[in-house]
Design a protein around this nucleic acid. Structure first.
Length: 309
DNA sequence: CCTATTTGACCCGA
DNA sequence: TCGGGTCAAATAGG
């Protein structure tokens, strides 16, 4: 565990190099494809997927080494997806191997617990962070949810934020304990425009379905449609569209998602949101789309992780 | 019975 | 001390 603290094993180096090579190659391919066949939507997605996988893999390797190897940034910076995971400064003195073990504490000694906590928060600080804006479209199904939203999230908290009309909800990957996936996200409904939500992600998924190819269709999952939806006066805002933005914390990553589905313009704000607030039965639109943005246009179903596990 | 959500308490950094 | 983020017991739902 403490063996090589300031350096990576040659395996890690090699692995990293390989990953980077693959990443670069993929980018080139992407560029090339982009020029020749402009209509290859599928190819584009595949490439995005591949790039994403490379990024995550590299990130993982980096995480497992004390000094985050900053080779990723390189000079490639072409593909937007390559925002390269941002690591705030040096990880200070986090121990070399952020491995589980400690999380499995069973004894529950407050000591262990505490250290675990500290460790976690430190680690957390290093996680890349970015924000996307998602808006609901009253006449369409959920729009192009981001890959990241296809994951299984589990809500672990909600808080009223000072100055914000709506509470902020916190989610973490369902597989955190089982697979050490530290991805989390928080959703904040915009004060001004209730149709807009700000989703801030932290950390990339390292869980199986997060790292590997995206979980595509098997969403069938006997639609465990949430009852909440049923009570909604309207099912309008089921749709949302994602556009993104980025704003990172001191990290220099310029991130932008390549996919930007068609924009829908709902000129009129449905009276829906008119005087929501206190009298309206509308709790929080966030509820509907929060947990897990579903691709199903008709129902924002919340898929349990059971599917993938 | 098991898993996910709710919600007040608790922790920690600013 | 305050406010944001997380924990965890209670609760909901299948």
């Amino acid at each position: 565990m403490e063996g090589k603290k300031d350096m990576f094993s040659w395996e890690q180096k090699t692995l990293l190099s390989e990953l980077i090579l693959g990443l670069e190659a993929t980018k080139k391919l992407q560029a090339r494809l982009g020029e020749s066949s402009p209509a290859s939507e599928t190819n584009g997605n595949l490439l995005k997927q591949i790039l994403s996988s490379y990024e995550k893999s590299i990130a993982i390797v980096n995480w497992s080494t004390s000094p985050p190897v900053q080779l990723i940034p390189k000079a490639v910076g072409v593909a937007p997806v390559t925002k390269s995971v941002g690591f705030p400064k040096s990880p200070a003195s986090v121990n070399g191997s952020p491995r589980s073990e400690e999380f499995l504490d069973g004894g529950g000694s407050s000591e262990t617990h505490r250290q675990e906590h500290i460790f976690n928060s430190k680690k957390r600080k290093m996680l890349p962070k970015w924000t996307e804006k998602v808006r609901i479209n009253p006449e369409r199904g959920l729009e192009g949810p981001h890959q990241d939203d296809v994951y299984s999230w589990r809500k672990y908290g909600q808080k009223d934020i000072l100055g914000a009309k709506f509470p902020r909800s916190y989610y973490r990957c369902t597989h955190r304990s089982t697979q050490n996936c530290w991805a989390t996200k928080q959703v904040q409904r915009s004060d001004s425009d209730p149709t807009v939500f700000q989703v801030t992600y932290r950390g990339k998924h390292t869980c199986a379905r997060g790292t590997l190819a995206a979980p595509p269709p098997p969403e069938k999952q006997d639609t465990r449609t949430q009852p909440i939806i049923a009570q909604k006066p309207n099912e309008i805002l089921e749709s949302l569209k994602t556009s993104l933005t980025v704003r990172t914390e001191g990290l220099d990553d310029v991130f932008s998602f390549p996919n930007t589905p068609p924009l829908y313009d709902y000129g009129n704000t449905n009276d829906y949101f008119g005087g929501v607030m206190e009298s309206s039965p509308i709790f929080d639109v966030a509820e509907w789309f929060n947990p897990t943005i579903e691709i199903n246009p008709d129902f924002p179903t919340f898929l349990p992780d059971s599917i993938y596990y």
